Amino acid sequence: MNWDQIKGQWKETKGQVQQKWGKLTDDDLDVIDGNREELAGKIQQRYGIAKEEAEKQVEEFQNSCSC
């Protein structure tokens, strides 16, 4: 699935995102609003990981997404 599809279905996808990254709040997800860079940045911030690792996790999520 490409990121445009995930962004277009963000309301439905938020649950899967929160399952994978439980430290993200509902407010975080509302601010992210399907923006891939925002998601990676919030993951980086909440989990204290490097930018590259956060982007890798987002890429893996995108590839496995059943949205």
Rank of each mutant, 00 (worst) to 15 (best):
M1L: 08
M1D: 13
N2L: 03
N2M: 03
W3I: 10
W3K: 10
W3C: 12
Q5W: 02
I6N: 05
K7M: 06
G8K: 01
G8D: 02
Q9C: 10
Q9H: 07
W10G: 01
K11E: 12
E12M: 11
E12G: 13
T13G: 04
T13M: 08
T13L: 03
K14F: 11
K14P: 04
K14Y: 10
G15D: 08
G15E: 01
G15V: 02
G15C: 01
Q16E: 13
Q16I: 02
Q16C: 06
Q16D: 13
V17C: 06
V17S: 07
Q18G: 05
Q18C: 05
Q18I: 07
Q19D: 13
Q19A: 13
Q19L: 09
K20Y: 07
K20G: 14
K20T: 14
W21A: 07
G22E: 00
G22Y: 01
G22A: 13
G22D: 08
L24F: 06
L24S: 05
L24W: 10
T25A: 04
T25E: 00
T25N: 03
D26I: 02
D26S: 09
D27Q: 13
D27M: 06
D27V: 12
D28M: 10
L29K: 05
L29N: 09
L29E: 04
D30A: 15
D30G: 07
V31C: 01
V31I: 11
V31N: 09
V31A: 06
V31Y: 03
V31E: 11
I32K: 00
I32V: 14
I32E: 01
D33Q: 06
N35S: 08
N35W: 03
R36L: 00
R36C: 03
E37G: 08
E37A: 15
E37Y: 08
E37Q: 12
E38V: 04
E38D: 11
L39I: 10
L39M: 09
A40L: 07
K42H: 12
K42I: 04
I43C: 06
I43Q: 10
Q44H: 07
Q44Y: 09
R46C: 00
R46A: 11
Y47G: 09
Y47K: 06
G48R: 05
G48M: 02
G48V: 09
G48T: 10
I49E: 07
A50Q: 15
K51N: 13
E52A: 15
E52T: 13
E53W: 03
E55G: 11
E55I: 11
E55F: 04
E55C: 04
Q57E: 15
V58M: 08
V58C: 01
E59K: 15
E60N: 12
E60R: 10
F61T: 09
F61I: 00
F61A: 12
Q62F: 02
Q62C: 08
N63Y: 00
N63F: 00
N63Q: 13
S64L: 03
S64G: 07
C65L: 09
C67Y: 01
C67L: 12
C67R: 01
